[in-house]
Amino acid sequence: MLKDWTRFCDLSAKGGTMSLGDNPLVPPTDTGETLELPPSRLTATLGFGPSFFLREGVDRFGIAPTMPLHLKDIPRMARENIDPGISGGDVCLQICADDQQVAFHAVRNLIRLSTGRASLKWMQEGFASGTAGQTPRNLFGFKDGTANQLHDSAQGHDEVVWAGNDEPSWMRGGSYMAYRKIQMKLESWDRTSLSDQEATFGRSKVSGAAFGAHAEFDKVDAAKLPERSHVRLAKESKQQIHRRAYSYTDKVDPRTGNVDAGLLFISYQRDPDRQFVPMLRLMQNNDALNAYVSHVASAMFACPAGLQPGQYFGQRILES
C-alpha cells in the first residue's frame, strides 16, 4: 500500500493521473476529476501513529524497535472533550493543495488504493487563506503562527522542527506532527467586545502586535500581557513549535443553531515531550481562550524525513 501511495503521490504532484480508459469492462483506475487541472502545489505528508509500532502491546509489523523516541498519544488534558472516533490512527496522510478538488482527488484515490489493506478511520477537511509574507488569520480573526518567524532559518528549523540524531535513523530529519481539532464557539466570540477579545489573546486584533509592542513581530514582553492570555502562556512555556494551522467549518448544531467550526491545530516539532505537551498542558489549565474553545480530537504522528528518488513511504521502517 505504501508503495502504491508513493507512486500515486509522485504522479499527482506532477499533475498526472492514473489510467482512465484502458479497458471499458473494468472500472477506470483513476477517478478522473483532476483531468485538465494543474497540480496546484499538491503535497502529501505521511505520518505514523504510536499504534503503528505497538497496538495494545502487540507489534503487528515487527517494527517496534524502530519506534521514535517521543512518539506517543498526547496525554489526557484538562477540559478536553476528545472523541476517540476522530482521533489517532496508525497512519496519517495530510494532503494539501491550492485547489480543494485536487486535494480531495488525491485523498479519494489514496483511500481506494488502501482498500483491503487499511481502513479509513477519520477524515477532516480544512482551509487556510493568507497574503504572501503575512501571517494567516484564524476564524477568531487573529493572526495564527506569528512566532514561526522566530525560527525561520535553516538553523532555526533544525532546533525546532527536525528530529535529531538520537532518533532511529529513518526519523532523523523527520518531524512530529501534533494534531488537535479545536472547536471554536464563534457565536459567543462574536458577541465579545474587541477589548476582551484582544485581552484573551494578548495581541491587537488588527496589527497582531502583542500588548506593549507596536508591530506584530516586535519582541514580546510577557509581563505586559494579561496573565491568562494565550500569547503570554505560550511565551511562558519558553518553547517553540512550528505552527501550520487550518480552519474548518461543518454542520449546524440543531439544538443551538450554532455552527460547528474551528481550528485544525497542527504543529511540527522535534520533541513533543519537551516542546508541545507542556505548552498544551499550560494552556488547557490556564488559557483565557478556553472559554471559547473545546478540543474535540487529538493525535500524534511521526513523519519520516523526505524521500529520496526511488524510495517509498515508510521503506526505512519496514525494511530496517
Partner: peptide, 24 residues
C-alpha cells in the same frame, strides 16, 4: 482554496487541506 493560493508565507503552505487517518 483558490483564494488561498495567493501564496502564504511558507512556500508549501497550501490552501485546501485534508487529513485522512487510516488504521492499517
Amino acid at each position: 482554496a483558490l483564494s488561498a493560493c495567493g501564496g502564504s508565507k511558507n512556500d508549501d503552505a497550501a490552501g485546501a487541506s485534508s487529513s485522512a487517518s487510516l488504521t492499517a
